[in-house]
């Protein structure tokens, strides 16, 4: 927990978040023990959100869901 507090949550979004969404993201990061949030806008993820906190990755992007679907179809 002490480690996470010194960390920054790196957040990737497809478009710039509005203040309400940003507040929810920051609350989530804080809940995971992060002191700050760093945003990156990348249209390649199509939609949703990816959060990097330390070695943990929270991937809720449309891109990853599509990849998962693709894997399911291929299998």
């Amino acid at each position: 927990m002490k480690n996470n507090q010194a960390q920054t949550a790196k957040v990737i979004l497809a478009r710039k978040p509005d203040s309400e969404t940003a507040a929810k993201i920051e609350a989530f990061a804080k809940g995971k023990g992060c002191s700050s949030v760093e945003y990156t806008i990348d249209g390649k993820i199509i939609g949703g959100i990816i959060v990097y906190i330390g070695d943990t990755v929270y991937d809720g992007s449309v891109k990853s869901r599509l990849e998962e679907m693709k894997r399911d179809i291929s299998d």
Partner: peptide
């Protein structure tokens, strides 16, 4: 999806992910 996902949809997706 890139064309049709609106800001609102995107917001909903983000919130669902965060809640989960």
């Amino acid at each position: 999806l890139a064309r049709d996902i609106s800001a609102e949809d995107d917001k909903k997706l983000i919130e669902e992910s965060l809640a989960q």
